[in-house]
Each structure stands twice: as structure tokens, then as C-alpha cells.
Simulated scan of single mutants.
Amino acid sequence: MVDVAFGSVPTPLGDVLAAVTPDGVVATVFQDSDAARRRLLGRLGVPGVDDPARTAHALDELAAYFAGELREFTVPIDWRLMSTMQRRVLGALYETVPYGRVTTYGDLAGSSGSGVPARAIGSIMGSNPVPIIVPCHRVVAGNGLGGFSGGDGVDSKRWLLTLEGYLPPTLDWEL
């Protein structure tokens, strides 16, 4: 039987929760809470376990990313919460859009070979179960940042893109 271990790391955007199965990170959530953990357990249909050793690599990498010290995640990803289409689009994003770069919804629609229109790419980004590690914040609209369903919405997207150097810091920006 598969199970999931939880851990969280404090970040400027809140305590980021990582859910890790024996296969890898299956989900990240911007705000750790008992409700978020229960929702994930319900979606996965597996028990939760206390296994700090399993979550350590993911939490170390998330902490390093938010400290501005990590540019590429190496932690394995468990893609099981994604449909075939989500995996195709999010997999293309994960493999082709590096730290500090962005792509547009339309360009990702084309490069993923999914046949999905740009508007639907936005829905796939909004349902990404592994934000930050699978960097949906790096997908922008042709005329601006576009939307973002994680954390505090577009403000969180702006913060992540500033951390990565894509956007210039504002006067009140802090790491």
C-alpha cells in the first residue's frame, strides 16, 4: 500500500506544504493546514505517515529555492494526481522552462504538442498539484502576468518571478 508523508517549510509566502509518496513529491500547497492535508489524503486515497526522512530532500530544496540558493529542483515528482493531458503540458513546462525564464500560455500550448488551446493551458496551470517545483508561475499571458491560483494569487506569482530575477524587485520587495 502506498502512503504519503507531509512536511512544511516556512517561506515568505507562508508555510509551504510538501506531500511525498515513496515515488516522490505528489503535491505542494502554499498554505500548510490540517484541512489541506485532509484534502490531499482524500484525493490520494492513502494513509498519511510520519516520515521526516522521506520529506527531508523536498523540504531542503524548497527552503533553498526560497532563500535564492536553488535554481533547479532534483527531488523526484510523483505525477499520479495529474491526468494524461496535465502531465503532458506540465511535463513540457517542467522540462523546458528553466529558472528565471517564462513562456506564454500560447507558446506552451504549442511546445507541449497537446493540441490544447492557450485558454485551456491556464486551467491546467491552475490545477497543477505541484506548484513551485513544477513551475506554473513561469507561464504568463502575452500581455502581462496572467493569473495564478497559488498563495496570494498574482502577488505570489510576482514574488516568485522576482526571486528568479525575471521581474525587477520593487522598493518594498524582501527575500
Rank of each mutant, 00 (worst) to 15 (best):
R87G: 06
L175E: 12
Q31H: 15
V97K: 02
R119M: 14
V140L: 13
N128P: 09
V102I: 15
L167G: 03
G45V: 04
A63I: 01
G45W: 00
G14V: 07
D34P: 11
G147A: 13
T11G: 09
L90N: 01
A56T: 06
L160T: 07
P76A: 06
P169D: 10
R87W: 02
G126V: 04
V116W: 02
L59N: 02
A27R: 03
Y105N: 11
G110C: 09
L145P: 02
S156G: 06
L175P: 11
R37M: 07
A109E: 08
S33Q: 00
G150R: 05
W79T: 10
R71S: 10
D15N: 14
A109I: 02
V46E: 11
P22S: 13
A56F: 03
S127L: 13
V130E: 05
A35V: 11
T21M: 06
R43C: 01
L44A: 12
G7I: 08
A58H: 04
M125D: 03
L81M: 08
Y94K: 15
E72L: 13
P131H: 00
F148A: 03
G144L: 10
G115V: 00
Y94I: 05
T74Y: 00
T11C: 10
P10E: 14
Q86H: 15
R43D: 09
V97L: 03
F30H: 13
V134C: 09
F30Q: 05
L145I: 02
R87K: 14
P129L: 10
P98E: 11
R88N: 09
V102D: 07
A64M: 04
P117S: 05
R119F: 11
F66T: 03
D172E: 13
E69H: 09
M1C: 10
R80M: 12
V29P: 01
A58F: 00
I133Y: 04
G147W: 07
L70E: 10
I121D: 06
F148P: 00
P52K: 09
W173F: 14
R138S: 06
V154T: 13
L108G: 09
L175V: 14
L62S: 05
P129H: 05
Q86K: 10
R158W: 08
A58T: 06
K157G: 05
